[in-house]
Nucleic acid binder design. Structure first.
Length: 602
RNA sequence: GGAGGCGUGGUGUAGUGGCCUAACAUGCAGCCCUGUCAAGGCUGAGAUCGCGGGUUCGAAUCCCGUCGCUUCCGCCA
């Protein structure tokens, strides 16, 4: 390692590996970075030095500067170097037009190996697929890769855009605690014990919901926060145990005020950060009922059709009575037309039936309009004319596959909506260059919980409702429409919120319908109920999933790609190996004794 | 909790009963090479095919179990 400078350090300007251009030719500079690639030609050695700003070629010439050349001979990928030298125009014909710095190179006069590196377990200098567990175990190397750096930088810009957008509109950012009271509603809480109260627990917030409402009561009428949220539930491709939301709450606002604020923000961000074409401008709007009816989903992907069509009436007129009992008991018979799949084999159709069953169907009726004629297990119950009327009535053509489900409305929606999503991906029906935003609103406030024998909030128990539906709270609670709205994008829910109840008596009434006794309400929700009694202003807000949005903007397959240090599907941190057992003394401190998680096995 | 997919040198893949004494690319090590930029050439090391059991004359390959990762259902907004 060379310890002495041949050049007066005061005369040196430090640059990044991405900034030097032809205009810098002749300057003596220093750059520091990682060895991206080394090309040893025997005489000349070229090293591409990399940092997050780019690549710069350094050339070591043994005839001009033999000492640095000798050091460069032993350098390997991912070594950390400081190199000084003169910026030189590359010889004619050796420029690299693919690099922004490709016109120049640095002729190394000194080289300092700031650190060596083991051979990395995977390529840092290229973008190939690597087993994700390995990437997560060595996340710091993965983060060094170009793709991750681009995604993290883009994420930063998006969050900054949100902050600036809200700041200029008078919003203030307030931090709320991460150690809060556990509540039984919604997702399972992560619990946190503490030595100052052995046997008792904090919970990590599933969202800052109650805190932001208290801020409204406190007079901070325009609040936002980049809020970390925690839910101890199973992971998915788009779900992590801890995730980040843009959390917003406002006083004296209508549903329209909240959605238009967000709509402008997301319109601007889509234009600023993507090349996507906006399918709807302004955003599409659809009631929950319409979304479920037409798409079988409360977050429909509107980039393609394949809508659910009601074939109950058509079938009811025929002599085929198999679906009659379903219709009589309040069920539906609906169909989707899958284009170009009419020649599916028996095996493929069996697989579809299996897929339908995993989605909750009891069965799947199919009509394949194949080249060899019509194939359908229900054909024998219908005349040719009836089938022709049925298929043409829903727009099915030669070569298409018709899928029919008869069941309760919720099951029909779940199954056909799920199959629609499946074919949307399989048949590449959705244009990846399109962003289709849609607001979904008029969600039901409550749904009947069979197991709990009580009403349950579909969103959260603080959502308000349409005043004109108030009488329905007595007569037909399931029909009460919440003042709730979700923003969906290409089949994903990217955010949701509501206008809250701001009167204590309304809030208590809903809690009561949800089966909470007066005492339980006091114990679990006393703080918010009482706060509402002290001049709580009308208020409402929304929370946007930042990870999910960045995932859609970057076009990445899962949420882990846009989180610096994510957990795997089991919720494990493979880098630090968390969660992990703790010392006995730590358990004693917080008053805990462990018991086997599965007593039957133990 | 349930279902599917995957698991083969460091990495990414091929091989799906005998031609496997496991192949290819890349990476790694050594040597050669003064204008490369995915540098090139030569040589070499590196895998008991996730693990355990079974079927078979013979298993990376088939069966059972198990572990890990992942996607979906349940769960979760």
């Amino acid at each position: 390692m060379q310890e002495s400078f041949d050049i007066d350090p005061a005369q040196i300007d430090r640059f990044t590996c991405g900034t030097l251009r032809a205009a810098n030719v002749g300057e003596t500079v220093e750059i520091k970075g990682w060895v991206h690639r080394r090309r040893d030609l025997g005489g000349l050695i070229f090293i591409d030095l990399r940092d997050r700003y780019g690549l710069t070629q350094v050339v070591f010439n043994p005839e001009i500067h033999p000492e640095p050349h000798a050091i460069a001979s032993d350098v390997r990928n991912e070594y950390v170097l400081a190199v000084t030298g003169v910026v030189r125009k590359r010889p004619d014909g050796t420029e690299n037009p693919r690099l922004p710095t490709g016109e120049i190179e640095i002729e190394a006069e000194t080289i300092h190996v700031l650190n060596t590196s083991l051979t990395p377990p995977f390529y840092v200098n290229e973008d190939g697929d690597v087993d994700e567990s390995l990437r997560l175990k060595y996340r710091y190397l993965d983060m060094r890769r170009d793709r991750m750096q681009k995604q993290m930088i883009l994420r930063h810009r998006i969050v900054k855009y949100m902050r600036d957008y809200l700041d200029t509109r008078g919003f203030i950012e307030v931090e709320t605690p991460l150690l809060i009271k556990s509540t039984p509603e919604g997702a399972r809480d992560f619990l946190v014990p503490s030595s100052s109260s052995p046997g008792e627990f904090y919970a990590l917030p599933q969202s800052p919901q109650q805190m932001k409402q208290l801020l409204m009561i406190g007079g901070y009428d325009r609040y936002f926060q980049i809020a970390r949220c925690f839910r101890d539930e199973a992971q998915r491709a788009d779900r992590q145990p801890e995730f980040t939301q843009l959390d917003i709450e406002m006083s004296f606002v209508s549903q329209e005020d909240v959605t238009s604020l967000i709509e402008t923000l997301f319109l601007e961000m889509t234009e600023a950060f993507t090349d996507k074409k906006l399918l709807f401008r302004p955003f599409a709007r659809m009631t929950y009922a319409e979304a479920m009816d037409r798409y079988g989903s409360d977050r429909p992907d509107l980039r393609f059709g394949m809508e659910l069509q009601n074939v109950g009436p058509a079938l009811a007129q025929t002599g085929f009575k198999a679906f009659a009992s379903v219709l009589e008991s309040g069920g539906q018979v609906k169909a989707i037309v899958v284009p170009g799949c009419g020649n599916y084999t028996r095996r493929e159709i069996d697989d579809l039936t299996e897929r339908a069953k995993t989605l909750g169907a009891r069965g799947l009726a199919t009509i394949a309009l194949s080249d060899d004629g019509l194939r359908s297990p229900i054909a024998k119950f219908l005349t040719e004319d009836e089938i022709a009327a049925l298929t043409s009535g829903i727009g099915a053509a030669q070569g298409d596959l018709v899928l029919i489900v008869a069941d309760a409305p919720a099951v029909v929606a779940k199954v056909l909506g799920g199959l629609r999503d499946y074919f949307g991906v399989l048949l590449k029906l959705a244009d990846p260059d399109v962003f289709a935003y849609c607001w979904i609103y008029e969600f039901p406030l409550l749904e009947w919980d069979e197991e709990g024998n009580r009403w349950d909030a579909t969103h959260n128990p603080f959502s308000g409702f349409y005043e004109e539906d108030r009488p329905l709270l007595d007569s037909d609670p399931g029909a009460v429409r919440a003042l709730q709205y979700d923003l969906t994008l290409n089949g994903n829910e990217v955010g949701g919120g509501s206008i809250r109840m701001h009167r204590s008596e309304d809030q208590q009434r809903i809690f009561s319908m949800m089966g909470h006794s007066e005492a339980a309400q006091e114990e679990r929700f006393g703080a918010i109920i009482h706060a509402l009694e002290y001049g709580a202003p009308p208020h409402g807000g929304i929370a946007m999933g930042i990870d999910r949005f960045v995932m859609l903007v970057t076009g990445t397959e899962n949420i882990r790609e846009v989180i610096a240090f994510p957990k795997n599907q089991r919720g494990a941190d493979l880098l630090f190996e968390a969660p992990s057992p703790v010392d006995e003394q730590q358990l004693i401190d917080v008053g805990l004794a462990l018991r086997p998680s599965n007593p039957e096995k133990a």
